[in-house]
Write a protein that binds this DNA or RNA. Sequence first.
DNA 1: CTTATCTCTACTGTTTTGGTAGAAATTATA
DNA 2: TATAATTTCTACCAAAACAGTAGAGATAAG
Lengths: 142, 142
Amino acid sequence: MKLSTRGRYGLRFMLDLALHYNQGPIFLKDIAQRQGISEKYLWHLIHPLKAGGLIRSNRGAHGGYFLAKAPSEINLKEIMQSVEGSLALVDCVDNDSVCQRAQTCITRDIWQEATRVMLHTLESLTLDAMVKRQTEKEEQVK
Amino acid sequence: MKLSTRGRYGLRFMLDLALHYNQGPIFLKDIAQRQGISEKYLWHLIHPLKAGGLIRSNRGAHGGYFLAKAPSEINLKEIMQSVEGSLALVDCVDNDSVCQRAQTCITRDIWQEATRVMLHTLESLTLDAMVKRQTEKEEQVK
DNA sequence: CTTATCTCTACTGTTTTGGTAGAAATTATA
DNA sequence: TATAATTTCTACCAAAACAGTAGAGATAAG
């Protein structure tokens, strides 16, 4: 039940953009350097994040990436769903036809409920809340 | 973020034992048949469940498996931790030395919190509650 | 027209996952 | 004590998912 690097890096990428919100397009190169992740790999995350309408980009010289919405309007559930796909803990939650037992299986109900709770948690965490926590943490270090 | 078959089958195995609680040792063969899972594969789950103190067994003829505790004393968190290992969403939650950023990384705090909520949910679900739901569901079908 | 940047396709190696084979150990019971 | 039924264990294999890289093409600024 580990998160893959897609999810972990995806959040770090988005948080980096949130920390530089309203500072114009941010170079992928800079994000990659700050986060210690290769540009090549980050591309795999950028693609679904664009498709999910969470980020936008400018091409060409002086191009770069920026959030498509305010940090307060972007939550962790959206980010994870974009980069990881469905967050259902088991496939039968999304689609009962994957298992003949689905109609009568009580464990399916259990996983459905657990998935719901998890999604609710992720939904309550927004990028701007994370930015706030980040800056608070940096204050404490001083 | 999908659960592996270990987790899914592990719960079904335990629920099967719970449904036959106090009926003496249950043959692996019977569980395998009811659940549609090979005996060979189930062995991989049985081993950690025994190590985790959740089930016990009798060897030899008329042997079999049974719960080591009452169904009300066994929750989903224990079962998952036994068959899947650590349930931390990311490795750095258990062990900060896996990442140099751990001390200052706000995303680590986020995953730590999400993990905590998830564990709390799993902990609140006990085998006997699932048995109750199962029998209620069967009543409704009639 | 040159440089900086994003965009895209394709490939590769490694790890994890799911599953099987077959033999050894243990116990009830005839 | 022999036999049948069952758990226990080691080893292995194939397929899928994951993590990461290479290199070329498209676009825009200056």
